[in-house]
Simulated assay, not measured.
Amino acid sequence: MQAQAILFRRPDEVALDSVTIPEPGPGEVLVEIQYSCISPGTELRCLSGKQNGLDDWPFIPGYAASGLISTVGPETSLAVGTPVFCGGTEQVSGAARGWGGHVSHAILEESNVYPLPFNLSLLDSSLAKQAAIAYHGLRLSRPQPSETVAVVGLGLIGQLSARLHAMTGARVVCTDLSASRVELARSAGLEAYQLQGSLFETLHQVLPQGADIVVDATGHPAVLPQAIALASDLPWDDTLTPAPRYLIQGSYDNTFSIPYVQAFYKELSFLLPRDQQPRDIRIIIELLAREKLHVRDLISAVRDPEQAATTYSELKTPDSSLLTAAFHWS
């Protein structure tokens, strides 16, 4: 069948065009996508041509979408009309698949879609992948209710990470250069401060003992030395004190350097979450359905796919008012 897809044709060129999606075979389902949500850090890196492994242009960006099953193949159990979350089409012709997320119809193995409760908004659930990435980081950082978490960078992943860490009972303190992003965090009940001077100058008075966990959601290597300084210091006596953790949730192009001496004296453990696991998506869906996690305010705009080029251009602007945007396909 003919479907519409957002394509990255070449670096910095975005288009909406037709692609061909096959009919479902055994064990496969066809999903009519309602919403697909942009993951800004990763997708802007893809658009700039800096994403390792994605160099077959044009390709379909994105990896987070929700919709309704419209057709099923043999040997499947889900019914037509079932709402699902999915990562993107697994088969396509007319363009490279990329991750296949921003497309009007997606063909997937039934085992790779996540049925959604009927009371869960398809718009909210289109953010499940990004939230699952932040949740996977939470599982690695293992915050305790008695601990303090400093979240540096309040883009989409930073906002999600802050909300999820706060759900554990830990004290979460956030900062960002953007006044609007700080205000968004505050509106969610988080303690947030606009960056004034260095990170240390901004947060030292509210975190005089430092943070047990530093979440770096910036993706900027220059932030590392400043953010490491936020981590708590270990005593030199026999006190049994857990070492601070540095959770890297930002999306990096390739390599970055760690200031060894700073990290050494703090016995800092570095945690690098590798995307997410299916269990993380299932838990996020449950948290959304139970209204324990709220994400609607993080989707700054809902756009028609025809506005894709303008939307990505806005997201590239340093002072953009967009945190992320979702495309409405149906």
Rank of each mutant, 00 (worst) to 15 (best):
T310D: 13
A289M: 09
A309W: 09
V173H: 01
E90T: 06
G101W: 03
T310E: 15
W57S: 04
P24K: 03
A308T: 02
T218E: 01
A309R: 11
I299H: 08
V31F: 08
P26H: 10
A229K: 13
T148D: 12
Y63S: 12
L184W: 01
P242C: 05
R45N: 12
A211S: 07
S104A: 14
I228W: 07
S330W: 06
V103M: 07
P143T: 04
R163E: 14
D233H: 14
S232Y: 02
T241D: 11
G101P: 04
A132H: 07
T324I: 11
I157W: 03
P278T: 07
L123Y: 07
L44G: 03
F200N: 15
D319M: 07
G25Y: 10
D238H: 13
S125Y: 05
H294I: 10
H220Q: 14
I60C: 06
P26V: 03
T20E: 14
D17Q: 11
Q34L: 13
Q194P: 00
S257R: 11
K266Y: 03
T20P: 10
F85C: 11
S187Y: 04
R279C: 12
I60R: 08
I299C: 11
L293V: 04
T324F: 10
L247E: 03
Q205K: 15
S111H: 12
P58V: 01
P259I: 05
G250W: 04
Q194S: 09
P145M: 03
I38T: 10
L160G: 00
G81M: 00
A170N: 03
L199N: 08
A150G: 05
S18E: 15
S48D: 15
G158H: 01
E286T: 12
S126F: 10
N119R: 15
N119P: 07
F200P: 05
A170I: 09
A243N: 13
G169E: 09
V19N: 10
S93P: 11
G41N: 00
N112G: 05
D238P: 02
T241Y: 04
H136N: 12
L54M: 11
L184R: 12
P145I: 10
L54P: 06
A243H: 10
R303M: 03
S121Q: 01
F270E: 06
L160E: 07
T42I: 00
H204K: 14
Q194M: 07
P305L: 02
